[in-house]
């Protein structure tokens, strides 16, 4: 039974990393947001599995928050935004997606090696979880660096935050307050960024960050 529990937790956390990889090569904004919704669904599955195995009912609340906000509300709102801006069919050319994938694989390898070495004293459950969580965080960062569109940067930021939640739920005894406050701050960040998206759009007729750089009078 123990073996089973471990394998399922492993599968779900690994799935999260896999979905992170999927996000990296999505060229269409709409597809990207839907993959992000899937990311959140996998996260909430993983968290509820942790809740079941750790016998910690408050983690169900975390899973529910992830499901409602990250998988439904935020992607829905983002989809609405890009529709209203008329960019939902826009194709964002991802430069060197192959190279980015390779870099992502390198990051995942690094974080697994690092985490497995650093956490030898912790139980296997949390070790695997932490390694995958760090990979998800690094992949989110990688996405923010490689994308130029503001919406995809927001998605990268959110997926990074998913990695944090994965790490937090993997460790036993994390109080609910922490997760709620993290979720709340992400929500606020989403609102602020959403407002900014419209402001940027109003001003520059695009949400390509390159336009901002041109406006600052700098070449790239």
């Amino acid at each position: 039974m123990d073996r089973m529990v471990f394998d399922i937790a492993h599968l779900l956390a690994g799935g999260l990393v896999l979905v992170s990889f999927m996000m990296i090569y999505q060229e269409r904004l709409g597809a990207l947001i839907r993959v992000f919704a899937m990311h959140a669904v996998v996260l909430s599955l993983s968290v509820s599995w942790q809740a079941w195995t750790q016998d910690a009912p408050h983690l169900y609340v975390t899973a529910a928050i992830a499901l409602v906000f990250k998988a439904v509300v935020i992607p829905g709102a983002l989809l609405r935004i890009i529709r209203r801006m008329g960019i939902h069919r826009e194709v964002e050319t991802v430069v060197g997606s192959g190279l980015t994938m390779l870099a992502g694989m390198g990051l995942v390898a690094m974080s697994i090696v690092l985490m497995l070495r650093l956490t030898e004293t912790v139980d296997a459950f949390a070790r695997e979880d932490l390694a995958f969580a760090l990979s998800v965080v690094l992949l989110g960062l990688l996405m923010m660096v490689t994308r130029r569109n503001a919406v995809s940067q927001v998605v990268g930021f959110m997926s990074m935050e998913n990695g944090l939640i994965l790490a937090a739920t993997g460790a036993k005894g994390m109080p609910l307050v922490v997760e709620i406050s993290v979720a709340f701050s992400v929500l606020i960040a989403f609102i602020v960024i959403g407002v900014f998206l419209f402001r940027i759009r109003e001003r520059f007729d695009t949400i390509d960050l390159g336009a901002l750089e041109e406006y600052r009078g700098e070449n790239q």
Binding site: M110, S111, L138, L141, E213
Partner: peptide, 25 residues
């Protein structure tokens, strides 16, 4: 710097620190 370069700077330093930690251990 541009926003993306700042981000790259942050990511770069984070990754290199993690790399150092990996090699160190």
């Amino acid at each position: 710097l541009t926003i993306r370069r700042y981000l790259s700077l942050v990511v770069g330093s984070l990754v290199s620190l993690l790399l150092v930690l990996t090699i160190w251990n």
